[in-house]
Write a protein that binds this DNA or RNA. Structure first.
Length: 271
DNA sequence: ACTGGCTCCTGAGGGC
DNA sequence: TGCCCTCAGGAGCCAG
């Protein structure tokens, strides 16, 4: 489910409901997600006041008084704010009860999500320390992408999805960004010209910004008592549209595999 | 240092 | 209806 826009939309959605609240209970219904849950997470969290929630790549950082809860949603995780007496579904894995009668609930069918606790600076955590630049910040630009890709023979699409290169670009938006930039996803990363690197950065930025502006492409509501948010889904140009006409030229959208992941592209527009 | 492949887990959908 | 296969928006880890 989540790529960067969905994670950011989740952050914005839950922020007003949890910041400033005190954690009154921690309930885990599984012993592990992708990794074992930290030992005594309940002891760490209960009684803590939530000072803020920030994002680094696809990681959410829930800042508490004595440490930080780090949350990654994996492929199928989502976070919502629900009433304290909300019924428990089969994939509801973790609840953080708050002192305002609400709970922050992690639902994750495939359990590919991750929960970590650190008392240190979370950006120094081993899983976060080597992350690349944020795609919407100034550290990600044509020249940095150019420099990172020199000598690399791996295809540009899996390269773009490598979180050491740039964070937050998953399988959907990698295909979409390459389409916007007019670049064949199978091209070796090191073969991109300066101009193509600039175009690809712009493709990544524009598609992520549009997706964030529309509230993510696949988000369910976080708001208590509210049904679905009224956003429009971002129209995806090529992802999931194999065989359909390319929105730019009308040729059939192609489907191939790169790095084991489905890749959608237009062989006419993307050279 | 790179690269490709495997892995965690559950559910949906297609073919027979 | 049931069984088996493939695939699914992530990403850490490990051989070669």
């Amino acid at each position: 489910m989540p790529e960067l826009p969905e994670v950011e939309t989740t952050r914005r959605g839950i922020e007003p409901h949890i910041v400033g609240r005190t954690i009154t209970a921690f309930i885990a219904r599984v012993a592990k997600l992708r990794l074992p849950l930290p030992a005594d997470l309940s002891g760490q969290l209960v009684g803590q006041r939530i000072a803020g929630i920030t994002r680094r790549g696809k990681y959410l950082l829930v800042r508490c008084g004595s440490g930080t809860l780090i949350i990654h949603l994996g492929m199928t995780g989502h976070l919502r704010v629900v009433p304290a007496d909300a019924p428990v579904g089969p994939h509801d894995r973790v609840d953080l009860a708050l002192d305002n009668g609400l709970m922050l609930r992690l639902t994750d069918p495939r359990r590919f999500g991750t929960l970590l606790w650190t008392a240190e600076e979370p950006l120094q955590h081993p899983l976060l320390a080597s992350l690349g630049p944020e795609p919407l910040e100034s550290g990600f630009d044509g020249s940095s992408l150019r420099a990172a890709s020199r000598g690399r023979r791996v295809a540009i699409k899996p390269f773009l999805m490598d979180s050491r290169v740039v964070v937050g670009v998953g399988n959907i938006y990698a295909s979409e960004a390459l389409f916007r930039a007019g670049i064949d996803p199978a091209r070796p990363a090191g073969a991109l010209s300066d101009r193509e690197c600039v175009a690809l950065v712009e493709g990544v930025r524009s598609v992520l910004e549009e997706a964030i502006a529309q509230g993510g492409t696949s988000l369910e509501t976080f708001l208590v008592g509210e049904e679905r948010p009224g956003y429009f889904r971002l129209r995806l140009a090529v992802y999931g549209r194999a065989g359909e006409p390319c929105p730019a030229c009308g040729a059939a959208v192609k489907l191939s595999r790169l790095g084991g992941r489905s890749t959608y592209w237009c062989s006419n527009c993307q050279g």
